[in-house]
């Protein structure tokens, strides 16, 4: 069986591109492909990942300028055609700026850059990215961001909840909603959301940094396995 090509987009300032590339390469049957932001075709990849970092130095707002890079027009077309797109951290910020996902990522409520292992609850497993997880499974992915506080109008939040589109929610060490659960003040403890069709996922925590027990958690593998399975 031939390998499934997964595109890893690089903007100037992306810095988790190698982590994502290696994460994809780690999945059997997957072949990561670099996509430079100035390219105008996706080289027939079957899935796209926007990696974390500080595209365009986070100038103006995180993701605001990257959203207009040439490759994004192709990513938007690919997503509109139903192709799976995963945005991690800065990639999530770019997807909201591109309006592929609702809401916005605002400065953390405590003005600190949070960098720590973070527990999450998988709230929806009927997505291409989470089918490998159990219902309401608690996973641990690192977070590393200063602008990760998910915000949207109350009506949008309500719709996301009603439609089961909150895919990951921050929880505390015991898997509950205690005061230590939420690292950034996001509304409803939201860590990741999916679009209405169900093929574009954005999340602030880094599954790409949770690929091996050696680094504290291998819980992130499921997302990449799901992505590759869907893309195949």
């Amino acid at each position: 069986m031939s390998k499934v090509s997964i595109g890893v987009v690089r903007f100037p300032g992306t810095n988790c591109d190698q982590d994502v590339f290696d994460a994809v390469a780690d999945i059997e049957l997957a072949r990561p492909v670099w996509l430079w932001h100035k390219e105008t075709n996706l080289q027939d990849v079957k899935g796209v990942v926007l990696a974390g970092g500080f595209s365009y130095g986070d100038y103006l707002r995180a993701g605001a300028i990257a959203r207009f890079s040439p490759i994004m027009e192709e990513v938007i077309r690919f997503a509109s055609d139903g192709g799976p797109v995963l945005g991690i951290c800065n990639g999530f910020q770019i997807l909201t700026e591109a309006e592929l996902l609702p809401g916005a990522l605002m400065r953390n409520n405590r003005l600190t850059f949070v960098c720590r292992p973070q527990r999450l609850r998988v709230e929806a497993r009927d997505t291409p990215f989470t089918r490998r997880y159990a219902h309401r499974q608690i996973v641990s992915f690192p977070v590393a961001h200063a602008e990760g506080s998910f915000a949207a109008d109350a009506s949008v939040i309500e719709r996301l909840e009603d439609e089961g589109r909150v895919v990951f929610r921050y929880v505390d060490e015991r898997g509950g909603n205690g005061p230590d659960a939420n690292p950034n003040g996001s509304m409803n403890d939201i860590a990741g959301v999916i679009n209405k069709v169900g093929n574009v996922l954005g999340l602030m925590p880094h599954p790409d940094r949770a690929m091996h027990e050696m680094v504290g958690s291998a819980d992130g593998r499921g997302i990449f396995e799901g992505l590759v399975e869907t893309a195949a």
């Binding site: 103006l60 605001a64 300028i65 207009f68 909201t96 809401g103 916005a104 915000a151 949207a152």
Partner: peptide, 8 residues
Amino acid sequence: RLLANPII
């Protein structure tokens, strides 16, 4: 389109 994000 760019300078502000009307959502927030």
